[in-house]
Design a binder for these strands. Structure first.
Lengths: 234, 234
DNA sequence: TAGATTGTTAATCGATTAACAATC
DNA sequence: TAGATTGTTAATCGATTAACAATC
């Protein structure tokens, strides 16, 4: 689907340094889902979890789960599975969620305001440091605990508060311009919630949320099912 | 990444009926992005667009674009490319966006309320018919032009208003229960905005928005880049 | 005409799944 | 011990890319 790239997987001769092959994107995504599930199990007091259980929870094969977990530096125990707490720690560490990540949201429309108040961010280890907009109609307004700031202040805030990720929640037409502003302010990753594709220079990661292409997927699946009664949609 | 499934691609002997192979999910997703781009070009008065231009806009190869467009029943013209209006019409028709799709949102928290007022839905051909919640604290409240309804009314509304898609915007713990309610109310597709994985019976499509696994992806890319200055993150 | 661009086939690449020996 | 489950290698499957003849 996409590649993480890191041109360092030759490993010729030396065979030292922590230069493993880059982990495929689908693997990272699944790992973060395993994490989600494992945490629930920990809360429930479960000490062990098997690849089969994780597989069933996420609707993937247990083979996929074991392949994925082999990227981690933990090992399971035959007959039991994996220690839940170890699994959690290991995934957190791998993904880089062992420390909180500071983010800003640009675009204080309905979506941006909602995101800035979404409790799930902090639960997932992301701290929303600022909410920005370019319109004087909203700059200065209070949204939850934040006050909408001018995008002109982005560079300063990104530097001072050590912001790693910028979330783009503006209309498609403004998305690329905002991306550029975030990049020049110094963020290292962009989460694009708009419909437009945004580009960023090498060294800045972009992930497109693609909410509306997901809806299109549903439209298509439903239409296809209607056209010729197939047996499963996903 | 996932499969659309429709066990009908044998095509033995007969070779008639409109039973083509199911279109791969990545293709549908890209088609909806091409659509996005083409519409902008139409607004700008462009009459033709080439596979190369689409490729550059979306950062894919032109080979991929041509492969994707070969699923459509249009054909391009050497030296010119594809007629923008034909391309738009053809994608709309294929995806099933030639007619509006009625949706409901369940969960009237910050996110659900924001989504219900997000203008992009109607621009993309989705009509939000209702906003539902299970808490008496919000049922009856006005959110934009909608009034929050009780989830108990879901079956009736889904039937009467011909709702195809349900959007799940409740906390992870409630997600599966809401999915079940939507399914039994009769929707045919679910867009899950929560962190939990939800299941649905055959015949009901599920797409997971995975906003937080996208953020995890960024965390990982940033962490990986820091660890060993690689050259590109995506 | 010469050059650009399509449409399509074949090659490559990567991700998922199957299978099974090792192990608790 | 017998049975379940891991870890890993090899096979399969599918998606992307390369390449190029056909065409405008």
């Amino acid at each position: 689907m996409m590649m993480l790239l890191s041109r360092m997987w030759e490993n010729e001769g030396k065979g030292n340094m922590d230069d493993r092959a880059p982990i495929p994107i689908p693997v990272i995504r699944r790992l973060s889902h395993y994490l989600q599930h494992v945490r629930v199990q920990i809360e429930l007091g479960r000490e062990w979890i098997s690849s089969l259980e994780l597989a069933e929870a996420l609707e993937v094969t247990s083979s996929t789960v074991r392949q994925d977990l082999s990227w981690l530096d933990i090992s399971g125990t035959a007959k039991r599975g994996y220690k839940t707490v170890d699994l959690e720690a290991s995934i957190l560490q791998l993904i880089g969620k062992d420390r909180a990540s500071n983010i800003v949201i640009v675009g204080a429309g309905n979506l941006g305001r909602a995101l800035s108040q979404h409790e799930e961010f902090s639960r997932q280890g992301f701290v929303i440091i600022g909410l920005f907009d370019s319109s004087n109609r909203v700059i200065g307004k209070k949204v939850g605990k934040l006050v909408v700031q001018s995008v002109d202040d982005l560079p300063q805030v990104v530097q001072e508060k050590n912001i790693e990720i910028g979330v783009i929640s503006v209309p498609a037409k403004a998305a690329q311009a905002v991306a550029d502003q975030l990049v020049s302010a110094g963020v290292q990753g962009l989460l694009n919630m708009s419909c437009a594709h945004v580009r960023a220079p090498n060294g800045v990661s972009v992930v497109e949320a693609r909410m509306f292409s997901s809806l299109s997927l549903l439209s298509y699946a439903i239409k296809a099912r209607k056209a010729h009664g197939s047996e499963k949609g996903r």
